[in-house]
Amino acid sequence: MITRHRLRWRIQHWLEARLPGLLTCAQFQEMVDAYVDDELGPVVRATVDFHMKTCPICQRYVIAYGKVRDFAADTLSAEEAEALDVVPEGLVTAILAARGVGGARGGGPNS
């Protein structure tokens, strides 16, 4: 049977013969970070955009990739906003004590 991959490969092969400089999915993958971080120059970006137009799987991949990066940032900044609003008193004491001891003798943090 003609698998979906085989069909995609045939189409891509056909396109590549006519439009040299097309990216394979593997080459596209190498540019995914620069793409979502908006670090591509206009020419390369156009090549990447073209691959996405002809390859819905890569298109979906890169959209998800960017979203996950944003979710990670959102998750951890939300966590920071909920963080405690005082440093535990025992820790403050330990830090202040370590400073007195550590500065002179390089000793441990606990007094």
Partner: peptide, 18 residues
């Protein structure tokens, strides 16, 4: 990590859209 065949074609079915 994603997988590619010998022709550089992405393998695996697309996932549920995020």
């Amino acid at each position: 990590l994603p997988d590619f065949n010998g022709n550089g074609l992405r393998l695996g079915e697309p996932r549920t859209e995020i």
